[in-house]
Design a protein around this nucleic acid. Structure first.
Lengths: 216, 216
DNA sequence: TTGCAACGTTACTGACCGGTAACACACATT
DNA sequence: AATGTGTGTTACCGGTCAGTAACGTTGCAA
Protein backbone atom coordinates (compact mmCIF):
# COMPACT_ATOMS: atom_id res chain seq x y z
CA UNK A 1 0.00 0.00 0.00
CA UNK A 2 3.06 2.22 0.04
CA UNK A 3 3.72 1.98 -3.68
CA UNK A 4 4.02 5.18 -5.61
CA UNK A 5 1.32 4.58 -8.15
CA UNK A 6 1.36 8.06 -9.62
CA UNK A 7 4.70 7.43 -11.24
CA UNK A 8 3.62 4.18 -12.90
CA UNK A 9 0.46 5.79 -14.16
CA UNK A 10 2.31 8.79 -15.51
CA UNK A 11 4.76 6.52 -17.29
CA UNK A 12 1.99 4.80 -19.16
CA UNK A 13 -0.02 7.94 -19.77
CA UNK A 14 -0.67 9.17 -23.24
CA UNK A 15 0.63 12.70 -23.18
CA UNK A 16 0.54 12.78 -26.94
CA UNK A 17 -3.22 12.29 -26.95
CA UNK A 18 -4.92 14.07 -29.79
CA UNK A 19 -4.68 17.71 -28.80
CA UNK A 20 -7.31 18.60 -31.38
CA UNK A 21 -10.03 17.22 -29.10
CA UNK A 22 -11.23 19.37 -26.24
CA UNK A 23 -9.76 18.87 -22.76
CA UNK A 24 -13.07 17.71 -21.34
CA UNK A 25 -13.33 14.91 -23.84
CA UNK A 26 -9.72 13.88 -23.32
CA UNK A 27 -10.14 13.90 -19.54
CA UNK A 28 -13.14 11.60 -19.67
CA UNK A 29 -11.38 9.27 -22.10
CA UNK A 30 -8.25 9.11 -19.97
CA UNK A 31 -10.26 8.64 -16.80
CA UNK A 32 -12.17 5.70 -18.26
CA UNK A 33 -8.94 4.02 -19.29
CA UNK A 34 -7.17 4.66 -15.99
CA UNK A 35 -10.18 3.54 -13.96
CA UNK A 36 -10.18 0.35 -16.00
CA UNK A 37 -6.50 -0.26 -15.34
CA UNK A 38 -6.19 0.71 -11.69
CA UNK A 39 -9.69 0.97 -10.32
CA UNK A 40 -11.53 4.16 -9.43
CA UNK A 41 -10.06 4.54 -5.97
CA UNK A 42 -6.65 3.62 -7.33
CA UNK A 43 -6.40 6.72 -9.54
CA UNK A 44 -6.06 10.32 -8.46
CA UNK A 45 -7.39 13.33 -10.32
CA UNK A 46 -3.84 14.57 -10.93
CA UNK A 47 -2.95 11.40 -12.79
CA UNK A 48 -6.11 11.66 -14.89
CA UNK A 49 -5.45 15.28 -15.83
CA UNK A 50 -1.87 14.54 -16.72
CA UNK A 51 -2.79 11.49 -18.79
CA UNK A 52 -5.23 13.71 -20.68
CA UNK A 53 -2.49 16.24 -21.39
CA UNK A 54 -4.33 18.74 -19.25
CA UNK A 55 -4.26 19.79 -15.61
CA UNK A 56 -6.26 19.53 -12.45
CA UNK A 57 -7.75 23.04 -12.62
CA UNK A 58 -9.27 22.42 -16.04
CA UNK A 59 -10.60 19.11 -14.79
CA UNK A 60 -12.33 20.83 -11.89
CA UNK A 61 -13.75 23.53 -14.17
CA UNK A 62 -15.59 20.79 -16.09
CA UNK A 63 -16.45 18.51 -13.20
CA UNK A 64 -17.37 19.79 -9.78
CA UNK A 65 -15.75 16.89 -8.01
CA UNK A 66 -14.21 13.51 -8.69
CA UNK A 67 -17.52 11.75 -8.17
CA UNK A 68 -19.06 13.84 -10.95
CA UNK A 69 -16.28 12.78 -13.28
CA UNK A 70 -16.81 9.16 -12.27
CA UNK A 71 -20.51 9.46 -13.08
CA UNK A 72 -19.79 11.01 -16.44
CA UNK A 73 -17.37 8.19 -17.25
CA UNK A 74 -19.88 5.55 -16.29
CA UNK A 75 -22.59 7.29 -18.32
CA UNK A 76 -20.37 7.28 -21.40
CA UNK A 77 -19.50 3.64 -20.85
CA UNK A 78 -23.17 2.74 -20.56
CA UNK A 79 -24.05 4.82 -23.62
CA UNK A 80 -21.38 2.93 -25.53
CA UNK A 81 -22.88 -0.38 -24.39
CA UNK A 82 -26.34 0.79 -25.46
CA UNK A 83 -25.16 1.06 -29.02
CA UNK A 84 -24.76 -2.70 -29.38
CA UNK A 85 -28.51 -3.14 -29.70
CA UNK A 86 -28.70 -0.89 -32.73
CA UNK A 87 -25.64 -2.60 -34.15
CA UNK A 88 -27.29 -5.99 -33.77
CA UNK A 89 -30.44 -4.78 -35.48
CA UNK A 90 -28.38 -3.31 -38.30
CA UNK A 91 -26.30 -6.46 -38.70
CA UNK A 92 -29.25 -8.86 -38.81
CA UNK A 93 -32.33 -6.74 -39.47
CA UNK A 94 -35.58 -8.43 -38.60
CA UNK A 95 -33.87 -11.58 -37.36
CA UNK A 96 -33.94 -11.41 -33.56
CA UNK A 97 -32.95 -15.07 -33.17
CA UNK A 98 -29.81 -14.41 -35.14
CA UNK A 99 -29.26 -11.18 -33.19
CA UNK A 100 -29.41 -13.14 -29.95
CA UNK A 101 -26.71 -15.53 -31.15
CA UNK A 102 -24.63 -12.59 -32.29
CA UNK A 103 -25.03 -10.97 -28.89
CA UNK A 104 -23.67 -14.10 -27.24
CA UNK A 105 -20.82 -14.28 -29.71
CA UNK A 106 -19.84 -10.67 -29.15
CA UNK A 107 -20.02 -10.99 -25.37
CA UNK A 108 -17.88 -14.13 -25.48
CA UNK A 109 -15.27 -12.65 -27.80
CA UNK A 110 -15.00 -9.59 -25.60
CA UNK A 111 -14.60 -11.67 -22.46
CA UNK A 112 -12.01 -13.98 -24.01
CA UNK A 113 -9.85 -11.02 -24.97
CA UNK A 114 -10.22 -8.78 -21.93
CA UNK A 115 -10.03 -10.04 -18.38
CA UNK A 116 -10.69 -6.70 -16.70
CA UNK A 117 -14.41 -7.20 -16.27
CA UNK A 118 -17.30 -4.81 -16.66
CA UNK A 119 -16.58 -1.20 -15.79
CA UNK A 120 -20.04 -0.72 -14.33
CA UNK A 121 -20.01 -3.83 -12.18
CA UNK A 122 -16.49 -3.06 -11.01
CA UNK A 123 -17.53 0.47 -10.08
CA UNK A 124 -20.41 -0.93 -8.05
CA UNK A 125 -17.91 -3.00 -6.09
CA UNK A 126 -15.72 -0.01 -5.33
CA UNK A 127 -18.36 2.62 -4.62
CA UNK A 128 -20.29 1.20 -1.71
CA UNK A 129 -20.83 4.42 0.21
CA UNK A 130 -24.56 4.78 0.76
CA UNK A 131 -26.14 7.12 -1.75
CA UNK A 132 -23.11 7.47 -3.98
CA UNK A 133 -24.35 9.15 -7.18
CA UNK A 134 -22.66 6.56 -9.38
CA UNK A 135 -24.87 3.83 -7.99
CA UNK A 136 -27.93 5.14 -9.79
CA UNK A 137 -26.01 5.38 -13.05
CA UNK A 138 -24.84 1.80 -12.68
CA UNK A 139 -28.23 0.46 -11.70
CA UNK A 140 -30.05 2.25 -14.51
CA UNK A 141 -27.58 1.01 -17.09
CA UNK A 142 -27.72 -2.58 -15.88
CA UNK A 143 -31.49 -2.59 -15.70
CA UNK A 144 -31.71 -1.19 -19.22
CA UNK A 145 -29.32 -3.88 -20.38
CA UNK A 146 -31.47 -6.63 -18.90
CA UNK A 147 -34.58 -5.03 -20.38
CA UNK A 148 -33.05 -4.96 -23.85
CA UNK A 149 -32.03 -8.59 -23.64
CA UNK A 150 -35.44 -9.64 -22.38
CA UNK A 151 -37.01 -7.82 -25.29
CA UNK A 152 -34.63 -9.49 -27.73
CA UNK A 153 -35.46 -12.94 -26.33
CA UNK A 154 -39.14 -12.14 -26.58
CA UNK A 155 -38.78 -11.00 -30.18
CA UNK A 156 -36.87 -14.19 -30.95
CA UNK A 157 -39.97 -16.14 -30.06
CA UNK A 158 -38.66 -17.74 -26.90
CA UNK A 159 -41.56 -18.91 -24.78
CA UNK A 160 -39.97 -18.24 -21.41
CA UNK A 161 -38.05 -15.27 -22.73
CA UNK A 162 -37.65 -13.55 -19.40
CA UNK A 163 -36.07 -16.57 -17.75
CA UNK A 164 -33.70 -17.07 -20.65
CA UNK A 165 -32.63 -13.45 -20.68
CA UNK A 166 -31.97 -13.47 -16.97
CA UNK A 167 -30.00 -16.69 -17.22
CA UNK A 168 -27.88 -15.27 -20.03
CA UNK A 169 -27.19 -12.14 -18.02
CA UNK A 170 -26.05 -14.24 -15.09
CA UNK A 171 -23.75 -16.30 -17.31
CA UNK A 172 -22.16 -13.27 -18.95
CA UNK A 173 -21.76 -11.31 -15.74
CA UNK A 174 -20.33 -14.39 -14.08
CA UNK A 175 -17.90 -14.88 -16.92
CA UNK A 176 -16.60 -11.35 -16.59
CA UNK A 177 -16.03 -11.61 -12.86
CA UNK A 178 -14.42 -15.04 -13.22
CA UNK A 179 -11.96 -13.64 -15.70
CA UNK A 180 -10.81 -11.16 -13.12
CA UNK A 181 -10.57 -13.47 -10.12
CA UNK A 182 -9.44 -16.74 -11.73
CA UNK A 183 -7.64 -15.55 -14.85
CA UNK A 184 -7.52 -17.00 -18.34
CA UNK A 185 -8.08 -20.57 -17.19
CA UNK A 186 -11.43 -19.81 -15.56
CA UNK A 187 -14.79 -21.30 -16.47
CA UNK A 188 -15.58 -18.26 -18.60
CA UNK A 189 -13.76 -20.11 -21.40
CA UNK A 190 -16.94 -22.11 -21.92
CA UNK A 191 -19.21 -19.07 -21.97
CA UNK A 192 -20.19 -19.24 -25.61
CA UNK A 193 -21.00 -22.94 -25.62
CA UNK A 194 -22.90 -22.62 -22.36
CA UNK A 195 -24.99 -19.70 -23.58
CA UNK A 196 -25.78 -21.44 -26.84
CA UNK A 197 -26.81 -24.59 -25.01
CA UNK A 198 -29.00 -22.46 -22.80
CA UNK A 199 -30.65 -20.80 -25.79
CA UNK A 200 -31.19 -24.19 -27.41
CA UNK A 201 -32.79 -25.54 -24.28
CA UNK A 202 -35.18 -22.61 -24.06
CA UNK A 203 -35.88 -22.63 -27.79
CA UNK A 204 -37.35 -26.09 -27.38
CA UNK A 205 -35.83 -27.39 -30.61
CA UNK A 206 -33.06 -29.41 -29.05
CA UNK A 207 -33.26 -33.00 -27.84
CA UNK A 208 -31.26 -34.34 -24.93
CA UNK A 209 -28.65 -35.71 -27.29
CA UNK A 210 -28.47 -32.37 -29.05
CA UNK A 211 -27.79 -30.64 -25.80
CA UNK A 212 -25.14 -33.18 -24.92
CA UNK A 213 -23.50 -32.56 -28.26
CA UNK A 214 -23.57 -28.82 -27.79
CA UNK A 215 -22.17 -29.01 -24.31
CA UNK A 216 -19.31 -31.18 -25.47
CA UNK B 1 -14.82 11.90 -2.06
CA UNK B 2 -14.47 14.40 0.75
CA UNK B 3 -16.64 12.48 3.18
CA UNK B 4 -15.17 11.65 6.54
CA UNK B 5 -15.57 7.92 6.43
CA UNK B 6 -13.59 7.20 9.56
CA UNK B 7 -16.30 8.67 11.72
CA UNK B 8 -19.05 6.59 10.17
CA UNK B 9 -16.97 3.45 10.51
CA UNK B 10 -16.11 4.19 14.10
CA UNK B 11 -19.74 4.79 14.91
CA UNK B 12 -20.71 1.37 13.70
CA UNK B 13 -17.68 -0.39 15.14
CA UNK B 14 -18.08 -3.03 17.77
CA UNK B 15 -15.91 -1.80 20.59
CA UNK B 16 -17.54 -4.29 22.91
CA UNK B 17 -16.24 -7.20 20.83
CA UNK B 18 -15.43 -10.23 22.92
CA UNK B 19 -12.28 -9.22 24.75
CA UNK B 20 -11.59 -12.83 25.67
CA UNK B 21 -10.37 -13.51 22.15
CA UNK B 22 -6.87 -12.45 21.21
CA UNK B 23 -6.32 -9.13 19.44
CA UNK B 24 -5.05 -10.79 16.29
CA UNK B 25 -8.22 -12.78 15.92
CA UNK B 26 -10.41 -9.76 16.59
CA UNK B 27 -8.47 -7.65 14.12
CA UNK B 28 -8.94 -10.17 11.32
CA UNK B 29 -12.61 -10.54 12.11
CA UNK B 30 -13.19 -6.78 12.18
CA UNK B 31 -11.18 -6.31 9.01
CA UNK B 32 -13.24 -8.89 7.14
CA UNK B 33 -16.45 -7.19 8.19
CA UNK B 34 -15.25 -3.67 7.40
CA UNK B 35 -13.82 -4.73 4.05
CA UNK B 36 -17.19 -6.24 3.26
CA UNK B 37 -19.01 -3.04 4.17
CA UNK B 38 -16.73 -0.41 2.69
CA UNK B 39 -14.32 -2.19 0.38
CA UNK B 40 -10.65 -2.81 1.03
CA UNK B 41 -9.44 0.56 -0.17
CA UNK B 42 -12.30 2.21 1.66
CA UNK B 43 -11.08 1.20 5.11
CA UNK B 44 -7.95 2.38 6.91
CA UNK B 45 -5.91 0.36 9.38
CA UNK B 46 -6.84 2.76 12.18
CA UNK B 47 -10.52 2.04 11.72
CA UNK B 48 -9.86 -1.70 11.69
CA UNK B 49 -7.82 -1.59 14.88
CA UNK B 50 -10.43 0.52 16.62
CA UNK B 51 -13.30 -1.71 15.52
CA UNK B 52 -11.35 -4.64 16.96
CA UNK B 53 -10.98 -2.86 20.27
CA UNK B 54 -7.24 -2.72 19.70
CA UNK B 55 -4.81 -0.26 18.19
CA UNK B 56 -2.65 0.25 15.16
CA UNK B 57 0.61 -0.78 16.83
CA UNK B 58 -0.73 -4.18 17.80
CA UNK B 59 -2.10 -4.59 14.32
CA UNK B 60 1.33 -3.93 12.83
CA UNK B 61 3.00 -6.32 15.29
CA UNK B 62 0.86 -9.13 13.87
CA UNK B 63 0.81 -8.07 10.23
CA UNK B 64 3.78 -6.49 8.54
CA UNK B 65 1.63 -4.31 6.33
CA UNK B 66 -1.97 -3.80 5.31
CA UNK B 67 -1.57 -6.10 2.34
CA UNK B 68 -0.54 -8.93 4.67
CA UNK B 69 -3.68 -8.37 6.71
CA UNK B 70 -5.75 -8.37 3.54
CA UNK B 71 -4.21 -11.68 2.51
CA UNK B 72 -4.91 -13.20 5.90
CA UNK B 73 -8.53 -12.06 5.72
CA UNK B 74 -8.99 -13.52 2.27
CA UNK B 75 -7.38 -16.79 3.39
CA UNK B 76 -9.78 -17.06 6.29
CA UNK B 77 -12.71 -16.28 4.02
CA UNK B 78 -11.63 -18.96 1.58
CA UNK B 79 -11.05 -21.46 4.40
CA UNK B 80 -14.56 -20.74 5.57
CA UNK B 81 -15.90 -21.38 2.08
CA UNK B 82 -13.96 -24.65 1.88
CA UNK B 83 -15.92 -26.01 4.79
CA UNK B 84 -19.15 -26.16 2.79
CA UNK B 85 -17.96 -29.27 0.95
CA UNK B 86 -17.55 -31.20 4.18
CA UNK B 87 -20.89 -29.88 5.38
CA UNK B 88 -22.56 -31.12 2.20
CA UNK B 89 -21.00 -34.56 2.58
CA UNK B 90 -22.11 -34.69 6.20
CA UNK B 91 -25.64 -33.56 5.39
CA UNK B 92 -26.21 -36.02 2.56
CA UNK B 93 -23.50 -38.68 2.90
CA UNK B 94 -22.94 -40.73 -0.21
CA UNK B 95 -25.53 -38.80 -2.21
CA UNK B 96 -23.62 -36.41 -4.46
CA UNK B 97 -26.68 -35.62 -6.59
CA UNK B 98 -28.50 -34.45 -3.49
CA UNK B 99 -25.39 -32.56 -2.38
CA UNK B 100 -25.31 -30.74 -5.68
CA UNK B 101 -28.91 -29.59 -5.25
CA UNK B 102 -28.12 -28.54 -1.70
CA UNK B 103 -25.14 -26.57 -2.93
CA UNK B 104 -27.37 -24.66 -5.33
CA UNK B 105 -29.92 -24.08 -2.60
CA UNK B 106 -27.36 -22.73 -0.19
CA UNK B 107 -25.78 -20.47 -2.79
CA UNK B 108 -29.19 -19.11 -3.75
CA UNK B 109 -30.29 -18.51 -0.18
CA UNK B 110 -27.07 -16.69 0.55
CA UNK B 111 -27.38 -14.50 -2.52
CA UNK B 112 -31.02 -13.67 -1.86
CA UNK B 113 -30.18 -12.45 1.63
CA UNK B 114 -26.89 -10.63 1.04
CA UNK B 115 -26.28 -8.28 -1.86
CA UNK B 116 -22.67 -7.52 -1.05
CA UNK B 117 -21.20 -10.12 -3.35
CA UNK B 118 -18.25 -12.42 -2.93
CA UNK B 119 -15.40 -11.09 -0.82
CA UNK B 120 -12.81 -12.78 -3.00
CA UNK B 121 -14.21 -11.57 -6.30
CA UNK B 122 -14.66 -8.08 -4.90
CA UNK B 123 -11.07 -8.05 -3.70
CA UNK B 124 -9.92 -9.04 -7.17
CA UNK B 125 -11.72 -5.99 -8.55
CA UNK B 126 -10.07 -3.64 -6.09
CA UNK B 127 -6.54 -5.04 -6.06
CA UNK B 128 -5.41 -4.72 -9.64
CA UNK B 129 -1.80 -3.71 -9.00
CA UNK B 130 0.39 -6.20 -10.83
CA UNK B 131 1.74 -8.88 -8.54
CA UNK B 132 -0.39 -7.97 -5.56
CA UNK B 133 -0.02 -10.87 -3.08
CA UNK B 134 -3.78 -11.14 -2.61
CA UNK B 135 -4.24 -12.12 -6.24
CA UNK B 136 -2.69 -15.54 -5.70
CA UNK B 137 -4.87 -16.14 -2.65
CA UNK B 138 -7.97 -15.24 -4.63
CA UNK B 139 -7.02 -17.29 -7.66
CA UNK B 140 -6.11 -20.37 -5.62
CA UNK B 141 -9.37 -20.21 -3.69
CA UNK B 142 -11.49 -19.76 -6.79
CA UNK B 143 -9.73 -22.55 -8.65
CA UNK B 144 -10.19 -24.88 -5.69
CA UNK B 145 -13.85 -23.96 -5.61
CA UNK B 146 -14.31 -24.82 -9.25
CA UNK B 147 -12.36 -28.05 -8.75
CA UNK B 148 -14.60 -29.10 -5.88
CA UNK B 149 -17.75 -28.41 -7.85
CA UNK B 150 -16.43 -30.28 -10.88
CA UNK B 151 -15.69 -33.24 -8.65
CA UNK B 152 -19.15 -33.08 -7.14
CA UNK B 153 -20.77 -33.04 -10.56
CA UNK B 154 -18.62 -35.97 -11.61
CA UNK B 155 -19.59 -37.91 -8.50
CA UNK B 156 -23.21 -37.15 -9.18
CA UNK B 157 -22.92 -39.10 -12.41
CA UNK B 158 -23.28 -36.16 -14.77
CA UNK B 159 -21.89 -37.11 -18.16
CA UNK B 160 -20.54 -33.69 -19.06
CA UNK B 161 -19.75 -32.86 -15.46
CA UNK B 162 -17.07 -30.31 -16.21
CA UNK B 163 -19.32 -28.23 -18.45
CA UNK B 164 -22.11 -28.30 -15.90
CA UNK B 165 -19.82 -27.29 -13.05
CA UNK B 166 -18.43 -24.39 -15.06
CA UNK B 167 -21.89 -23.24 -16.03
CA UNK B 168 -23.05 -23.33 -12.43
CA UNK B 169 -20.03 -21.32 -11.34
CA UNK B 170 -20.81 -18.69 -13.95
CA UNK B 171 -24.43 -18.50 -12.84
CA UNK B 172 -23.58 -18.13 -9.17
CA UNK B 173 -20.79 -15.64 -9.70
CA UNK B 174 -23.02 -13.67 -12.04
CA UNK B 175 -25.80 -13.67 -9.48
CA UNK B 176 -23.51 -12.24 -6.83
CA UNK B 177 -22.26 -9.43 -9.02
CA UNK B 178 -25.77 -8.64 -10.26
CA UNK B 179 -26.94 -8.26 -6.71
CA UNK B 180 -24.37 -5.56 -6.18
CA UNK B 181 -24.87 -3.62 -9.38
CA UNK B 182 -28.61 -3.99 -9.96
CA UNK B 183 -29.94 -4.53 -6.45
CA UNK B 184 -32.71 -6.77 -5.19
CA UNK B 185 -34.67 -6.68 -8.44
CA UNK B 186 -31.84 -8.16 -10.47
CA UNK B 187 -31.90 -11.40 -12.45
CA UNK B 188 -30.20 -13.19 -9.54
CA UNK B 189 -33.72 -13.69 -8.19
CA UNK B 190 -34.06 -16.59 -10.61
CA UNK B 191 -30.75 -18.17 -9.68
CA UNK B 192 -32.11 -21.26 -8.01
CA UNK B 193 -34.59 -22.12 -10.75
CA UNK B 194 -31.98 -21.48 -13.42
CA UNK B 195 -29.37 -23.66 -11.76
CA UNK B 196 -31.87 -26.47 -11.24
CA UNK B 197 -32.96 -26.28 -14.86
CA UNK B 198 -29.32 -26.42 -15.87
CA UNK B 199 -28.70 -29.49 -13.72
CA UNK B 200 -31.79 -31.16 -15.14
CA UNK B 201 -30.66 -30.46 -18.66
CA UNK B 202 -27.24 -31.97 -18.02
CA UNK B 203 -28.68 -34.88 -16.07
CA UNK B 204 -30.50 -35.96 -19.18
CA UNK B 205 -33.65 -36.93 -17.32
CA UNK B 206 -35.71 -33.92 -18.23
CA UNK B 207 -37.88 -33.56 -21.34
CA UNK B 208 -38.47 -30.23 -23.07
CA UNK B 209 -41.74 -29.83 -21.26
CA UNK B 210 -40.04 -30.59 -17.95
CA UNK B 211 -37.53 -27.91 -18.60
CA UNK B 212 -40.25 -25.47 -19.51
CA UNK B 213 -42.01 -26.29 -16.27
CA UNK B 214 -38.87 -25.82 -14.23
CA UNK B 215 -38.02 -22.54 -15.89
CA UNK B 216 -41.46 -21.20 -15.22
C1' DT C 1 10.46 -11.04 42.84
C1' DT C 2 12.17 -10.83 38.63
C1' DG C 3 11.83 -10.96 33.92
C1' DC C 4 9.74 -11.36 29.68
C1' DA C 5 6.27 -11.14 26.17
C1' DA C 6 2.14 -9.13 24.61
C1' DC C 7 -0.42 -5.20 24.43
C1' DG C 8 -1.82 -0.16 24.78
C1' DT C 9 -0.93 5.03 24.14
C1' DT C 10 0.75 8.97 22.10
C1' DA C 11 3.00 11.24 18.82
C1' DC C 12 5.14 11.54 14.75
C1' DT C 13 6.70 11.14 9.57
C1' DG C 14 6.23 11.39 4.71
C1' DA C 15 3.36 10.71 1.09
C1' DC C 16 -0.84 11.27 -1.25
C1' DC C 17 -5.32 13.08 -2.21
C1' DG C 18 -9.35 16.12 -3.25
C1' DG C 19 -10.11 20.66 -3.93
C1' DT C 20 -9.16 25.91 -4.31
C1' DA C 21 -6.88 30.60 -5.12
C1' DA C 22 -4.46 33.64 -7.92
C1' DC C 23 -2.36 34.80 -11.93
C1' DA C 24 -0.85 34.37 -16.75
C1' DC C 25 -1.70 33.23 -21.57
C1' DA C 26 -3.94 32.30 -26.10
C1' DC C 27 -7.53 33.08 -29.07
C1' DA C 28 -11.87 34.35 -31.09
C1' DT C 29 -15.38 37.84 -31.46
C1' DT C 30 -16.91 42.53 -31.62
C1' DA D 1 -7.97 47.58 -29.66
C1' DA D 2 -10.92 45.71 -26.19
C1' DT D 3 -13.20 41.98 -24.10
C1' DG D 4 -14.41 37.47 -22.61
C1' DT D 5 -13.85 32.61 -22.55
C1' DG D 6 -11.20 28.61 -22.04
C1' DT D 7 -7.04 26.98 -20.61
C1' DG D 8 -2.34 26.33 -18.30
C1' DT D 9 0.76 27.04 -14.11
C1' DT D 10 2.08 27.26 -9.51
C1' DA D 11 1.23 27.09 -5.02
C1' DC D 12 -1.32 26.07 -1.35
C1' DC D 13 -4.83 23.92 2.24
C1' DG D 14 -6.73 20.46 5.17
C1' DG D 15 -7.30 15.86 5.62
C1' DT D 16 -6.25 10.98 5.38
C1' DC D 17 -3.33 7.22 5.08
C1' DA D 18 0.35 3.59 5.92
C1' DG D 19 3.83 2.84 8.81
C1' DT D 20 7.24 3.73 12.87
C1' DA D 21 9.40 5.24 17.43
C1' DA D 22 9.38 5.46 22.18
C1' DC D 23 7.47 4.59 26.32
C1' DG D 24 4.16 2.71 29.59
C1' DT D 25 1.25 -1.12 31.22
C1' DT D 26 -0.44 -5.75 32.12
C1' DG D 27 -0.06 -10.40 33.24
C1' DC D 28 2.04 -14.67 33.34
C1' DA D 29 5.81 -17.84 34.35
C1' DA D 30 10.10 -19.26 36.38
Amino acid sequence: MSTTLSQKISDSSDISMNVLTRPRERIVKSAIELFRQHGIKGVGVDAIAEAAGSNKMTLYRHFGCKDDLVCECLKQVSDEKERIWDNLENSYPGDPARQLRAWVDEAAQHIYSDLRGCDLANAAVELKEAGHPAQKVIMDAKKAHVRHLVELCRSAGIEHYEQLAQALVLLVEGARVCGQSIGVEGPQQQLKQTCEAMIDAFSGHGSNSDRAAVSN
